[in-house]
Amino acid sequence: MNDSFNHIIHPKEDDKTFITSYWTERAEDFRKLREKELQSPKLLLWRDELVKHLKEKNGLRILDIGCGAGFFSIILSQLGHIVMGIDITPNMIEESKLLAQSVGSTAQFAVMDAENLDFDDNTFDIIVARNVTWNLPHPDKAYAEWLRVIRPDGLILNYDAEHARNHHDLPQSVHHAHEHVSNELKERCHTIYHMLEISSFTRPQWDKELLTKLGASSVTIDPTVGPRIYSEEDEFYIPVPMFLVKVIK
Results as ranks from 00 to 15, higher is better:
213 K>W: 09
134 W>S: 05
117 L>V: 06
127 I>K: 13
36 K>D: 13
185 L>E: 00
230 Y>A: 11
127 I>T: 15
52 K>S: 09
194 H>D: 05
95 E>G: 06
31 R>E: 10
131 N>S: 00
94 E>L: 03
36 K>P: 12
211 L>C: 01
133 T>G: 12
30 F>T: 08
191 T>K: 04
115 E>H: 09
168 H>S: 07
184 E>S: 10
154 G>K: 05
64 D>N: 02
244 L>Q: 09
55 K>Y: 02
234 D>N: 15
151 R>G: 09
156 I>G: 01
246 K>E: 15
201 F>P: 00
112 M>A: 09
3 D>Q: 01
248 I>N: 00
168 H>P: 04
243 F>E: 12
51 V>D: 14
32 K>C: 10
22 Y>P: 00
17 T>V: 07
31 R>Q: 08
69 A>G: 15
69 A>Y: 14
164 A>V: 07
150 I>T: 04
47 R>M: 13
159 Y>H: 11
221 I>T: 07
186 K>A: 11
94 E>Y: 15
217 S>N: 05
51 V>M: 08
240 V>R: 03
34 R>D: 13
137 P>L: 02
167 H>A: 08
149 V>N: 08
230 Y>E: 14
120 D>Y: 11
204 P>V: 07
107 A>N: 04
173 S>Q: 08
42 K>Y: 11
119 F>H: 12
94 E>D: 14
111 V>R: 03
186 K>C: 05
109 F>A: 02
104 G>H: 06
234 D>M: 05
61 R>C: 06
189 C>L: 14
35 E>G: 11
217 S>Q: 12
27 A>D: 02
82 I>D: 14
183 N>V: 04
158 N>R: 04
180 H>D: 12
135 N>E: 00
198 I>D: 05
65 I>N: 12
147 L>A: 03
95 E>R: 09
233 E>H: 00
237 Y>R: 01
136 L>G: 08
232 E>D: 11
97 K>P: 00
27 A>H: 06
92 M>D: 15
161 A>Q: 08
225 V>I: 14
193 Y>L: 07
70 G>Y: 04
172 Q>R: 05
110 A>K: 11
116 N>S: 14
61 R>S: 14
49 E>H: 08
109 F>Y: 15
137 P>M: 02
110 A>G: 01
70 G>D: 03
10 H>R: 04
175 H>K: 14
182 S>R: 01
233 E>Q: 09
77 S>L: 13
47 R>H: 07
